[in-house]
Each structure stands twice: as structure tokens, then as C-alpha cells.
Design a protein around this nucleic acid. Structure first.
Length: 717
DNA sequence: AGCACGCCGACT
DNA sequence: GTCGGCGTGCTC
């Protein structure tokens, strides 16, 4: 017997398999999808078995598999083939794809070994003649007769020696049972009835018994989660399982809570779990102990059989695209799995991505609408032109916003203030020469962290103490960070109890949940934060949302900047007035006439969509064209530049009908002392460009000092 | 990635 | 003569 094995080295030979002999002692123990240890050159490596054959005809000296790691395969046929599909789609090494489909604990070269955690229990082994026992022993036996199974630790507390005597006599025995590190307690049951509009959406989807894609376009607060819960309930009643995907961790606690009010067998997968917890959750899923998986991007690979539905909430979120190899999009993976299981895929958003909405309008997806808020009305939105306001008081806060905050606080209601920091984090400028302090390794302004008084590079992590400019001038703060806004706000409104939520205040475990709980329990009356407070949060006492600077994302050099801005404004606005009190939103901006801002005032997705689509059409951007970006990265500037030109020439030579842009220096020109060039292809048919790109990738795969990074449908350009 | 093989410079 | 530089190539 022979096995084709994919070894855990991604670097040299892409997707090459090696054949090994299965020694007779391993017959029946090696499966397709199992991990094995194999001798490889001088080293011992782990690998995945991809094929098992009776014959092998080539005349090569074969080695034997030296160890079988798994009792059962860890990847089933569906996931093995899904991996191959992703590998083809993203031009990533297959082994890297498999690794990212599994928890890190299952990876060969993981630094700390993560193993299942076991607890020792004691059970009665034989019928006991109580006369042969002393009092302590009797006490233990009686306890076991009453309770059946008791933690060994508990009995040891009575008497360690008695326990070991009984064990020796064979009267009791020890059993090991696994303890899962992550334990989701059962929630309080809560029932609701779908509103007519929600029921219609539900009925449409429940009717479907094939792999169709549905888009629920529902305004913020329209009760999409209730529809999800009913859909999942229906699936489970039919004996099937469900995957529910959410964009990021800050959203997860509330979504989990909602699902806990209805279901028990839920597993949770997201990046804030420890590796041990992830491993345990993964095995609970694999062992069929759960029926629902809720999680972020990677949860789309959850090893659930018999899927009945996949739900992707906040479909437009860029977190669904993985920003490292393999650069897959969750939507593509979900589509594959929905086809495999012949089950519906449901996308939900108040502000769908243009790509998704365009497909829904074309009829590729089913478009379903929730036009009304479930329990309240949409908030009133006021746009404040900062061009005039800014000159008057020269601060971050317009008079309108300050007045409204005071009014809301005096009613004992709450405020969420949103600071749009994208591309505009606080950096330091020299007051003499005007230079911005940049990272010596990356072409990026350093961000000033006031609490620790250091300048930090958000790309490579470089940190330096605050010094003087190279010209000797003083450095002055420019731009605005949450800390600075908080400082100014507490001066203007001394009575405000402000809690900040940003990267700095949420590094510790459970920090997210703590801040959200504290704010929810009204320990604070103002929540000030960055992107992470924009989505999903649901506080019934928040009646004012203030957007301090709507423009910064508008100025970001990206063709999607208008779309991101519109989405962001709708999302944050949606946090206001979710209870029974009317909500208000104040958006401060220097561009009050920009369509992204104007449309958000009226919650008008369709007008925004139409305006933006015209621009996309004119400039040949998605969804009219697909985009692939090719990044050429090298520590040598000359090499990066020359190879880029060579590649562009090659591509232009064979892709005569495609739009090829570049090479140009990338937006962030230098990262960690490596220079980056960019070539962009706009295309309609992937089949026309995939082979040359695969060729390029293979050509430079071996090269030490040139890295070619190919990113299909990049979210950042 | 490792590690061997191999082909040239500078040392006891 | 040989120690060791790292370029090239292979690993079932």
C-alpha cells in the first residue's frame, strides 16, 4: 500500500506530493485526510495523506511512513476538496490552505504543544462487600453509589490513601474524561414572534431546498438576527446543522447571547479564543457535539457535516477577506460549501457591498428587503458643516454636537461618539520644518501613543521614544486620536463619564465584553471609539450618535473610499434610537455635499448605489471589472523595480485584451525595509489571466529576494 | 526549510 | 594540501 503525502513545507515546490510506503503495521490506520510523520531528506516532517493506492509504478526508492498522528482523518473529503479549490482560486500552496482551515494546535511546528485537557473521575468497578471496608472507604463507596461518577479530586479530599487502596483492590476505577476549556453556559430562554415583513423573508428562504444565495437587505435595527434565529431553528428541526458568520469579535458576544436564548449546542470560533479553546471547540464540532457554529471568518471551515444553512451577517465587511496567504474570501468558501451541502447561503447587510447588491439586482442572488425597524423608527440625522464651525471654536466639537450631548445626558440617556481614524491616526509634525515623523523601516507615519509616550509604527511594530525632529525643531501633535478627543471632551463636558474603546483599550482578553457590559449597565454615559464600535452594538438607551470626522475615510486613496464611508456612517447611525426613544445622529464633516454623506442622511442606500455604480462604470472598477493586484516585494529597491517592469512587460505581451496598470510604487512604499511595487489587472474572465499568474507565482516562488504576492479582489489597493 | 554537494579563495 | 565561503539543487 502506498500513500501520497503533502508535507508541511510550503516554500519550494508548490503542491507537490510525495509517495510513501504504508508499512503493514499501519494497514487500516492510515486514511485519506489523516496526518502522518514521514522521513524527508534528513528531517522528519508532518504531512497530510491525500491519496491511498495499491500500486506504485515509478521506479523511485520509497521510504515508509513512520508514524500515524490521527486516529481518524482530520479533514474529510469535502474539506480536502475545498482546500484544493481555494488553492486554485487564490494561487496559494495547498498545505498553507489546509493549515489555515484547522486550529493551530494541529500544526506541526507549533511552539507550545496544545493537548486535550482531561479530568480524572472515579466510578465503582465491582459490587462491593461493605464488610471488608473501613469507615472512610465505606463513605467513599456510598458517595459513588449515590452519585455514580465523582471527580477524583473530590474523593482525594476525603482521603487520598483510601482512594488508592480501593483502586488497588479493584473496587473502584479511574476514568479520564475530557474537559473542554471553553464552556458556553446556557442562556435564559426568550421567545419572540417574527413581524410580517420578517416572516415574509423567512418564508422565502425556508422554501428553498437548494444552494441558492439570498441577500437580506435590511435597515439597521430591522431584526435580521431574529430572522437568522428562526432560520437556524428550522434547519435544526430538520436534523441539520448551521454556520453563522459575523465580521469580528466585538460583534460576537451579542450575537452569541441572542442565539443562546434559543439553542444549546453552539460552538464559538473567533480570534480572541486561546489556541487551546479553539482546539477544543473544533473537536466538539468535529465530534458532532454541536449543531451551530458562530464565528468569524475562519469558522466557515467548521467541520460540520450535514449543513442546512450558512449565514453571513454584515456581508459587506472587509474582515471576510483574509489578508494573508491564502487570501480567500469567506463568501467564495461559503458558496462552495452551500453547493456541496445543497443548502441556502444567506447574506445580510444594511449596506451591501456593491458587488453583492449588483448581483442581487441582476437576479444572480435573491433580493429580500427589510425596510422597517422592528421596534423603533430610524434616527434623524443632522449634518454639520465643519468648514464654518471649525473656524469658530477650533476644536473637534461643533456647538450643535456639544448642545445635543448635554441634552441627552441630562435625560439620563447615552451617547456613542465615533472617531473615524482610517488613514488619519494621530501623528507628529515638526513645528519648524513640517516633516512628519516616519518609521525608519516603513514608509509610514508613526502614531503617537500618549499614555505610554511612544511613537509606534502600526505596520512593523517599531517603537521609539518621543524625541526632537532631525532639524532640532519641536514635534507637535497633529491629527486626532481617541485619547486627545477624550481629553477635549472631558474639558467641555466635565460631568461626562467617558469610556474609550480602541486598539489601546482592548488588547487584554475580554476587554471588549467588559467595556460593552459596563456601558450597557450605564457605568458610563459616553462611549468613544473607533471602527470597532460601528457595528452590531445594541444599547436601548443610546439616543445620540456623534460622528466626529466623517471625512477621513473619504480621503483615503482607495476606489472604495466612498463606499466605506457610506457603510460606516450608516452603521454608526444605526446605533442610535434602538429602544423606544427617538434617536438622533450628528455627522460632522468638511464635505457636506459629498454623495456618500448626503445619502447617509436619508438612509438612502439605493441613491448611493446608483451614484457609485456610475463612477465604477466610468473608471472600470468592480463590479464592472474584477481586480487582481500583484505586489512585487524585495529588500532591494532596484531589484523590485526591475522585476516589476519585466513582469508588466510579460503580462502586457500575453494579456492583450486586459487592462493592466503599473508597475507603480505601492501606497505604502516600504514596509519592514522591503520595497513594494504594484501591478493591477482589471479583468472580466478569470480564465483568461489565471495561467500567466500561476506561471509568475511559480517562477518566483524559489527566489529568495523577490516575493510575488497575488491578491484577487483586494480590499485595499 | 534544511542539508549535501561543489567549486573557488586564503590559511596552518 | 585543506578549511570554509555560500550558490545550486534535491528531498518520496
Amino acid at each position: 500500500m502506498y500513500a501520497k503525502v503533502l508535507v508541511e513545507i510550503s516554500h519550494l515546490f508548490t503542491n507537490k506530493e510525495f509517495t510513501y510506503i504504508i508499512p503493514s503495521s499501519f494497514f487500516g490506520k492510515v486514511f485519506v485526510g489523516s496526518r502522518v510523520k514521514v522521513p524527508f531528506g534528513s528531517q522528519m516532517l508532518e504531512g497530510f495523506v491525500l491519496e491511498i493506492n495499491d500500486e506504485f509504478e515509478e521506479k523511485v526508492d520509497l521510504k515508509e511512513i513512520s508514524e500515524v498522528i490521527d486516529l481518524y482523518p482530520i479533514l474529510n473529503d469535502e474539506l480536502l476538496n475545498l482546500g484544493k479549490y481555494i488553492s486554485d482560486l487564490t494561487l496559494s500552496p495547498l498545505i498553507v490552505v489546509y493549515q489555515s482551515m484547522l486550529p493551530k494546535a494541529l500544526k506541526a511546528k507549533v511552539k507550545v504543544q496544545i493537548k486535550p485537557k482531561y479530568l480524572s473521575y472515579i466510578v465503582l468497578e465491582n459490587n462491593v462487600d461493605a464488610n471488608n471496608l473501613n469507615n472512610t472507604q465505606k463513605q467513599i463507596v456510598v458517595k459513588l453509589q449515590n452519585d455514580g461518577k465523582v471527580l477524583k479530586k473530590t474523593l482525594n479530599d476525603i482521603s487520598t490513601s483510601s482512594v488508592s487502596t480501593l483502586l488497588k483492590k479493584g473496587i473502584i476505577k479511574e476514568v479520564l474524561e475530557e474537559e473542554y476549556r471553553y464552556n458556553l453556559s446556557q442562556g435564559k430562554r426568550d421567545s419572540f414572534v417574527l413581524l410580517p415583513e420578517q416572516k415574509m423573508v423567512y418564508d422565502e428562504i425556508v422554501k428553498c431546498n437548494s444552494s441558492e444565495v439570498f441577500l437580506i437587505h435590511g435597515v439597521t435595527g430591522s431584526g435580521k438576527t431574529n430572522v437568522y434565529i428562526e432560520l437556524v431553528d428550522n434547519v435544526i428541526k430538520n436534523g441539520k446543522n448551521a454556520i453563522v458568520l459575523v465580521p469580528e469579535i466585538s460583534l460576537t458576544p451579542q450575537m452569541i447571547k441572542r442565539f443562546q436564548t434559543r439553542f444549546d449546542k453552539i460552538a464559538v470560533l473567533h480570534s480572541k479564543l486561546s489556541e487551546g479553546e479553539k482546539y477544543d471547540e473544533w473537536r466538539r464540532i468535529r465530534n458532532g457535539e454541536v449543531k451551530i457554529v458562530i464565528g468569524a471568518r475562519s469558522a466557515v471551515f467548521a467541520p460540520l457535516d450535514n449543513l442546512g444553512i450558512i449565514i453571513i451577517d454584515e456581508e459587506h465587511s472587509t474582515t471576510y477577506k483574509q489578508e494573508s496567504t491564502p487570501r480567500y474570501h469567506t463568501l467564495d468558501v461559503a458558496k462552495y460549501r452551500s453547493k456541496f451541502h445543497n443548502c441556502p447561503l444567506v447574506l445580510g447587510s444594511a449596506t451591501p457591498s456593491l458587488e453583492t447588491y449588483a448581483r442581487a439586482k441582476k437576479g444572480v442572488y435573491h433580493l429580500l428587503e427589510l425596510k422597517n425597524r422592528a421596534n423603533s423608527t430610524l434616527p434623524d440625522i443632522e449634518i454639520v458643516d465643519m468648514n464654518s464651525s471649525f473656524k469658530k471654536n477650533n476644536g473637534f466639537f461643533s456647538k450643535q454636537l456639544v448642545d445635543k450631548i448635554n441634552e441627552v445626558l441630562s435625560n439620563d440617556e447615552q451617547v456613542i461618539l465615533f472617531l473615524n481614524r482610517r488613514g488619519y491616526s494621530s501623528f507628529l509634525t515638526c513645528s519648524d520644518c513640517g516633516d512628519v515623523v516616519k518609521c525608519p523601516h516603513c514608509d509610514i507615519s508613526l502614531t503617537y501613543h500618549k499614555s505610554s509616550n511612544v511613537l509606534r509604527c502600526h505596520y512593523c511594530g517599531y517603537a521609539t521614544n518621543l524625541g526632537k525632529c532631525h532639524c532640532g525643531g519641536e514635534l507637535a501633535q497633529y491629527g486626532m486620536g481617541t485619547e486627545k478627543v477624550e481629553e477635549e471632551l472631558s474639558k467641555i463636558i466635565p460631568s461626562a463619564k467617558i469610556v474609550r474603546m480602541d486598539i489601546d483599550t482592548t488588547t487584554t482578553k475580554n476587554a471588549h465584553e467588559r467595556i460593552i457590559n459596563d456601558f450597557s449597565n450605564k457605568k458610563y454615559n459616553i462611549l468613544l471609539g473607533t471602527q470597532m464600535i460601528a457595528k452590531g452594538l445594541d444599547f436601548s438607551d443610546v439616543t445620540l450618535v456623534g460622528v466626529i470626522n466623517a471625512d477621513t475615510s473619504l480621503n483615503f486613496p482607495d476606489f472604495r473610499s466612498s463606499e466605506y464611508t457610506f457603510q460606516l456612517l450608516c452603521q454608526v447611525s444605526g446605533r442610535s434610537g434602538r429602544g423606544n426613544k427617538k434617536g438622533n445622529v450628528i455627522i460632522q464633516t468638511f464635505n457636506p455635499d459629498h454623495y456618500a454623506i448626503k445619502c447617509s442622511k436619508n438612509h438612502d442606500y439605493i441613491s448611493f448605489y446608483n451614484e457609485e455604480m456610475q463612477i465604477r462604470r466610468t473608471l472600470s472598477y468592480p463590479p464592472y471589472y474584477y481586480i487582481v493586484s500583484i505586489r512585487i516585494i524585495s529588500p532591494s529597491y532596484e531589484k523590485a523595480r526591475d522585476i516589476s517592469s519585466k513582469i508588466a512587460l510579460y503580462l502586457r505581451g500575453i494579456l492583450k485584451d486586459q487592462i493592466i496598470l503599473g508597475p507603480s510604487v505601492a501606497n505604502v512604499f516600504k514596509v519592514s525595509n522591503k520595497y513594494r511595487f504594484l501591478i493591477t489587472i482589471k479583468y472580466k474572465d478569470i480564465n483568461k489571466i489565471i495561467e500567466p499568474l500561476r506561471f509568475l507565482k511559480e517562477q518566483y516562488h524559489i527566489s529568495k529576494d523577490i516575493k510575488i504576492d497575488i491578491d484577487f479582489n483586494p480590499t485595499k489597493i
